[in-house]
Nucleic acid binder design. Structure first.
Ligand code: ZN
Ligand code: ZN
Ligand code: ZN
Ligand code: ZN
Lengths: 156, 156
DNA sequence: TCTTGATTGAAATAGTATAACATCCACATC
DNA sequence: GATGTGGATGTTATACTATTTCAATCAAGA
């Protein structure tokens, strides 16, 4: 039920995400250029992961000149800054809920409504790392994505 | 160091995988046709996840007539039977190490040598499920992939 | 001003996956 | 053995995702 369209002011989500991004970039001396900012805003248009070509269509709808590299470059920057995440199982992108700090993220993706919620549970990450270590494996990056039904879609 | 090319008889891996597949399909009344069997064998050609188009090339190298649907259909069948896994972060496919029983699998993927080891740790899956449940989310499928360095590549 | 490096524009191409329809084959039934 | 049926495969076309390459532009800093 969290983040149901009827139950939260999504403008606030977008506004918070954009201000945080400004702050983060400024603090790091990175440039949040108009294209990058606009792509971030488009990613935040919903709580559903968005495909790169959907973003491209939106950029073009803005009247802006845009080709695939336009959006992939913006995404590359936003990913590097931790402002968006890539959802591997969907080939899609999602705004990060807590971009300030480096963190291991996990995603709960609803197959019904398409929303994705972000978790940041260190014990999931450490369970993976522990078993990896037993195998002599050093973990550098983790992809954890759960598919299923969100609370809202279950009751419905 | 496990499964280093020099340190195990890979023919045995392949043979075991194919016999198990035969048995599993027979028990279920499913048909492991020549294409399907050959694709499974090709997937098992190494312990590295293989892309669909690499499999396609191999099928063609056999002299067989093959197009993308040929390999994707075979993979669809093998995935449904639990004989192969899909590695989401690589868009690639890997033979399942324990295809008989249904299981939650996790992968340790070496960025250096490309090998992927399969884990089947229930506590990783249950940690995910537990946090999901707290969010009211019902998990149906999990994708857990760790990128890093395998034991062999670390010492080297 | 000049230089330099980062960013963006633009065109082409590579890589991954599915849709749609025809044909074939194994098997059950008559 | 002939016929009908459904699954499996063949074939072509297309959709979707991502990168390469080179040119043009822009934004500081010397
Ligand atoms: Zn919102
Ligand atoms: Zn839902
Ligand atoms: Zn082996
Ligand atoms: Zn390795």
């Amino acid at each position: 039920m969290k983040r149901n369209a009827a139950q939260h002011d999504h403008r606030k989500c977008v506004h918070t995400a954009l201000s945080t991004a400004e702050a983060v970039c400024k603090a790091r001396g990175e440039k949040l250029t108009p294209v990058r900012k606009r792509v971030l805003e488009l990613v935040w248009a919903s709580h559903r992961p968005v495909g790169a070509y959907a973003l491209l269509d939106s950029l073009r709808a803005d009247g802006r000149s845009a080709a695939p590299p336009t959006v992939y470059r913006a995404l590359e920057f936003l990913l590097a800054q931790g402002l968006v995440h890539r959802v591997e199982s969907l080939n899609a992108y999602l705004g990060c809920a807590h971009p300030a700090a480096d963190h291991a993220a996990q995603f709960l993706i609803c197959r019904q409504c398409g929303t994705a919620a972000e978790l940041e549970e260190t014990d999931i990450a450490s369970a993976i790392d522990r078993h990896a270590k037993r195998a002599g494996f050093t973990v550098e990056r983790r992809t954890v994505e759960a598919m299923g039904l969100c609370a809202a879609c279950q009751t419905a």
